[in-house]
């Protein structure tokens, strides 16, 4: 397969809205495309995707390719792998960017294997060196950063972590051309079936989309105390996460866990409350831009990595902080 010059972004979406990480990757694609001189292409697979297309439109793509078929919703590996692989074979982009989400990690290696395309996952940065794609990515549970080069001809696939690239403005002057790709799918080729998606009701936003994360550890002491973190998160527009002990003790659901066996997050601000700072926890959050730690033990290892460390009792500080944040926020509204 020859390699073209276009950079594609696989647009993941839910409830008719593109995922934040997919939009961020349009920024990444734009910076990569400057050197190649190709187009930035948003690839939107799904069923009834007009609202997704409308939302992607002003985010700076040159072309939107659609793959529309009733069998493409909800997501299945077989359905999406088939249309993405077909489209890549036909159009030969240089790179396909995919967000590192449950869906992206499920899809990308399968498509790479089908196409014989080089694949790099969990990328934090992407760039060119001597005409080759160079990616950096955390390895060894973040104890090292690997620099990986993609070699050989033909398209390659990069799975990129959320929050690595800025969200593009929603007022791009570009008017992307929408090209509807014909889709042929046989129901029999889709071997798995999604019975249901149980959405976990949260009053706060999802962890991987959050700009600010308020996270609690064993120092929270009891499940009901997570309510004070929920209050603070609501005031800040933040997500709530945790270290492993609150998950293991059943205080919070599994998907709260941040760290080696949980999620990797890299928000603008990570506020660690009653978390000591074990290496397995740092593995998931030390890529945050700013770290603020509240801990009553002045020797907590978290203070070694925190930009601001506050020695004190979280049960006294958090409720007062929430009040203060609310005051600032309402002040802006005046």
């Amino acid at each position: 397969m020859t390699m073209g010059a276009d950079i594609w972004v696989y647009i993941e979406h839910a409830q008719a809205a593109p995922k934040k990480v997919s939009l961020e990757l349009l920024s990444c694609a734009r910076s990569l495309s400057t050197a190649l001189g190709g187009n930035v292409v948003a690839f939107v697979p799904g069923s009834k995707i007009d609202r997704v297309i409308a939302a992607v439109g002003p985010r700076g793509a040159d072309i939107i390719y659609t793959a529309e078929h009733p069998l493409l919703h909800p997501y299945t590996t077989d359905g999406h792998a088939a249309v993405l692989a077909d489209a890549v074979r036909a159009e030969s982009p240089a790179i396909v960017l995919v967000g590192s989400t449950a869906q992206g990690r499920d899809l990308a290696p399968r498509v790479a294997a089908r196409l014989g395309a080089g694949i790099v996952t969990d990328c934090t940065t992407l760039g060119w060196r001597d005409g080759k794609l160079l990616a950096t990515r955390p390895m060894y549970t973040r104890k090292a950063i690997g620099t990986v080069r993609v070699t050989g001809g033909g398209p390659c696939i990069a799975v990129v972590l959320p929050a690595m690239y800025p969200l593009p403005d929603a007022d791009s002057p570009r008017q992307p051309e929408v090209r509807r790709r014909p889709v042929q799918l046989d129901g029999k080729a889709i071997r798995t079936s999604v019975r249901e998606v149980k959405s976990v009701h949260r009053e706060t936003i999802p962890l991987i989309e959050a700009n600010v994360i308020v996270s609690g550890g064993r120092g929270m002491k009891a499940p009901e105390n997570f309510a004070i973190l929920d209050d603070l998160a609501r005031a800040l527009g933040a997500a709530v996460g945790s270290s492993r002990p609150p998950v293991d003790s059943g205080w919070v659901p599994h998907d709260y866990e941040i760290g080696q066996t949980g999620k990797t997050v890299s928000p603008q601000v990570y506020l660690a409350c009653g978390i000591s700072g074990a290496p397995q926890h740092l593995a998931g959050m030390s890529g945050s831009k700013y770290i603020v730690a509240i801990n009553r033990d002045p020797n907590a290892p978290m203070f070694q990595v925190a930009d601001l460390g506050v020695v004190g009792d979280l049960f006294e500080i958090i409720p007062k902080l929430t009040e203060a944040v609310k005051k600032v926020k309402s002040g802006i509204g005046d």
Binding site: T101, A102, Q103, R191, T192, S193, V194, R195, E196, V197, K198, S199, V200, R202, P206, L207, I208, E209, H254, D255
Partner: peptide, 12 residues
Amino acid sequence: EVEGGVEVVAVP
């Protein structure tokens, strides 16, 4: 476990 939910999938 997917972002914000749990996907229940049947696989042969």
